[in-house]
Design a protein around this nucleic acid. Structure first.
Lengths: 136, 136
DNA sequence: ATTCAAATGAAACAATGTTGCAAAGATAAT
DNA sequence: ATTATCTTTGCAACATTGTTTCATTTGAAT
């Protein structure tokens, strides 16, 4: 799915900054931090615009934030929603050593039973430890 | 368990700031933000000291951070470790409406199977939605 | 009591996130 | 095409959150 198609599907206006943000996230293999995204966006990056588009795109469900240990927030496309029509999201792994974040596509997030009166919307699962590379 | 006992058990020096932090967290029913803790610590609160003790206490496993949506970090005692000798941690619930965080003691965090080479240390589960009060 | 490492608090800094507002760009109607 | 309207952008200024440095104080062990 192209960046343009994604925006159209969510009825969000196509702008250079948004197109670029989505394309950069598509090109990366891992959830990316603001700085990583910024580097790839070059002249299309402006801090305020970035934060505002994070808002817009994440409200639309196009991207989501992943906050591992604080304080590096990472952003990723909601690939699941696109691939298997938004049923199960997956868990993420945070390496305490190299601080990278990877998607654990195998680990799906179950449907939790909440106490009476609570309504489920979303769920984040961050598994922390040390990654393959760091354990060698 | 008293604050003093907790510190002794972890071989961490007793200081007024640490004692107060732990006592404040014990008195609250929910994971508390820095500002909530600050209010209850009164004159014992200093920002730098607070952040340093968050480091110390969380390295020791006495407290942990809970980051829901960013950017309000909350802190809670690792009650599980104390109550049922650190087997299963529990999930947390974040209300998108009132922004409160509550412990979901019923929902234990399972032992996830990680890919080869990865080592598990910790896991955060944040379930998001709307809470009892907000759904009325 | 003396000693020595660890903890504190103040100031300064750095990074992260937000708000207000004027200019630029897109949309729709005439 | 031209105007009117709404959204998005980019800048400046601000607010909040977290860190570093360093002199001073404190805790606890001898």
């Amino acid at each position: 799915m192209t960046a343009l198609e994604i925006l159209k599907q969510h009825e969000i206006k196509k702008t250079p900054a948004r197109m670029s943000m989505i394309q950069v996230l598509q090109s990366g293999q891992y959830p990316m931090s603001e700085n990583e995204i910024k580097e790839h966006m070059a002249n299309l990056y402006d801090r305020v615009t970035f934060y505002r588009n994070v808002q817009t795109l994440s409200n639309a469900g196009i991207i989501h934030k992943i906050v591992a240990d604080n304080t590096t927030v990472r952003y990723a496309l909601n690939c699941c929603e696109i691939e298997h029509n938004h049923t199960a999201e997956h868990a993420h792994f945070y390496c305490k050593n190299c601080h990278e974040v990877v998607c654990l596509n195998q680990i799906k997030i179950p449907a939790y039973d909440l106490p009476k009166g609570y309504k489920f919307v979303d769920c984040d699962v961050i598994i922390k430890g040390t990654c393959e590379k760091c354990n060698q």
